[in-house]
């Protein structure tokens, strides 16, 4: 469904992505792991054109684009097929939870208001916020804000939802509620590309795990491949750092 080839991106003299290929099929839950600075977030942002890649191609259903040269029309078309959940939620502070979710439907997708609010209410119900339609972001906890962020993405019914470290900015006790919502929507068959440091989520929910380091994909495979029988030394080193002390690889 989404295939990215040979993506490169530099910031100044710093090459962050050094030729990454990525393929996601319908219904996949792909988790990208890696130390900070490995290019995971940049990769995600380039897919949604929040950053312009320096090189690379993407084919997304029937759309084929050069990531560097993509026209405004192509960018909008690809953004229509994707939705983004941000690390810092990035909710619209001047709008209520319901308006936050409906905004993209009404303005971006030209859905009639009445219908957009119906869809938005359903999306908020799904993330457990049916009591909070008329609350402004400033009145919600971090976990609730991020769930609005997820509802905003879900409501658009995109082909794929991109999650950029959705729990990293949360207080530890709020992480669970957000992960639960993500598990729920994964179960419904939503295609997801998730950058996260939550190893539990990667192990339990993903069907494909990618380990990135230094701007390249070091290793990829099923959660079993990566967590139980990692082949690359860099992967093993990273996992030993982030997994519990008593964790043992199978190989």
């Amino acid at each position: 469904m989404l295939e990215i080839k040979n993506i490169h991106k530099s910031f100044g003299k710093n090459e962050i992505l050094k030729g990454v290929d990525l393929r996601i099929d319908k219904g996949d839950v792909v988790v990208i792991l890696g130390p900070s600075g490995s290019g995971k977030t940049t990769l995600l942002r380039c897919v949604n054109f929040l950053e312009r890649a320096d090189k690379g191609t993407a084919s997304f259903g029937d759309i084929n684009v050069d990531l560097k040269e993509a026209s405004k029309k192509d960018v909008l078309a690809i953004r229509k097929k994707t939705a983004f959940v941000f690390q810092n939620y990035n909710l619209f502070n001047n709008k209520t939870a319901l308006e936050n979710v409906a905004e993209g439907l009404i303005i971006g997708r030209k859905v009639p208001k009445q219908e957009a609010y119906e869809i938005s209410k359903k999306a908020l119900d799904k993330v457990g916020l049916s009591e909070k339609y008329d609350f402004y972001p400033s009145q919600l906890s971090g976990g609730q804000q991020q769930r609005v962020g997820i509802a905003r993405a879900v409501a658009l019914n995109p082909d794929i939802i991109l999650f950029d470290e959705p729990t990293s900015a949360l207080d530890p006790e709020l992480v669970g509620e957000v992960l639960q919502v993500m598990k729920d929507i994964a179960k419904e068959g939503t295609t997801m590309l998730v950058v996260t440091h939550e190893m539990g989520f990667a192990k339990d929910v993903a069907n494909k795990v990618i380990f990135m380091d230094g701007g390249v994909i070091v290793e990829e495979g099923t959660p079993h491949d990566i967590f139980d029988t990692p082949k690359e030394e860099r992967t093993r080193k990273f996992l030993r750092r982030v997994l519990p002390d008593n964790y043992e690889f199978d190989n």
Partner: peptide
């Protein structure tokens, strides 16, 4: 106004 809100607006098609 945090730049992230502009990005979020772009990401939902504004």
């Amino acid at each position: 106004v945090d730049r992230g809100q502009l990005e979020a607006a772009h990401s939902v098609g504004l």
